[in-house]
């Protein structure tokens, strides 16, 4: 989260960042209250909890590929920008023989099941959209860390809610490669590898220490 925010405020060229998680984590949306997360369970299982700077719902990050697009060139329409970036993911999955579709506002589905969720913010005339592609899903485990509001499932059984997410059952590196290729195809660009400098890493660490790892940020709402 700290790296994403750092890039949002310090991006000169469009950036595609692809990453995973050193250990499982729950991220919650900017507007969510802290009670969306089963914090006790997270603590017991050593699952980190972090609040995003983007809206949307709580996400359990585990067996997934996470990406961030950061750019100063983007459609002003929010739905169009979601659609444009989602097209990269849809084309990437197509290369893997997976027929996915954009499910506005911020999801991508396969056979009606959510396999990818996104959230974006715009700051400093820059768009940050981060998203996750689920590779494998342990639905029981996933939902054990989240407090799903009863209103979300009031007209459906909990099992139906759980059945609405799925993984694509592909390897991280393979998905990473096709995502990079489809970024080039969709945006007509070439990618150059980029590593954060020591100074940039220190700035990210400072953000992590002073913002993202603090209780005042995580439980601010």
């Amino acid at each position: 989260m700290a790296v994403d925010e750092y890039l949002l405020y310090n991006c000169n060229e469009p950036i595609l960042r692809i990453y995973g998680w050193s250990r499982p984590c729950v991220s919650m949306g900017y507007f969510q209250s802290g009670d969306e997360v089963n914090y006790k369970k997270c603590k017991e299982e050593k699952v980190d909890v972090v609040r995003r700077i983007t809206g949307g719902g709580a996400v359990f990050h585990d067996m997934e590929l996470t990406y961030s697009f950061v750019t100063k060139e983007f459609p002003q329409s929010i739905i169009e920008s979601y659609q444009e970036i989602s097209e990269v993911v849809i084309q990437a999955l197509k290369k893997l023989g997976i027929d996915a579709e954009f499910a506005p506002l911020n999801d991508i589905t396969v056979n009606g099941k959510k396999i990818c969720g996104n959230a974006q913010t715009r700051k400093n005339n820059t768009l940050l959209q981060h998203g996750t592609i689920l590779l494998e899903v342990d639905v029981e485990k996933m939902f054990s860390f989240l407090n799903v509001p009863i209103e979300k499932i009031s007209d459906k059984k909990i099992s139906d809610v759980k059945n609405r997410v799925a993984g694509i059952s592909k390897e991280f590196d393979l998905v990473s490669d096709v995502l990079k290729n489809s970024t080039c195809d969709v945006f007509g660009c070439e990618l150059e590898p980029y590593s954060l400098s020591q100074k940039e890493l220190e700035s990210c660490q400072k953000l992590a220490d002073e913002k993202y790892s603090t209780q005042s940020w995580t439980f601010r709402r």
């Binding site: 900017y30 969510q32 983007t54 506002l105 913010t121």
Partner: peptide, 15 residues
Amino acid sequence: IKITGDFFLHPEEAI
């Protein structure tokens, strides 16, 4: 009043 949830609002600080 506190308004929370999984909605989106741009800019976020407007909440």
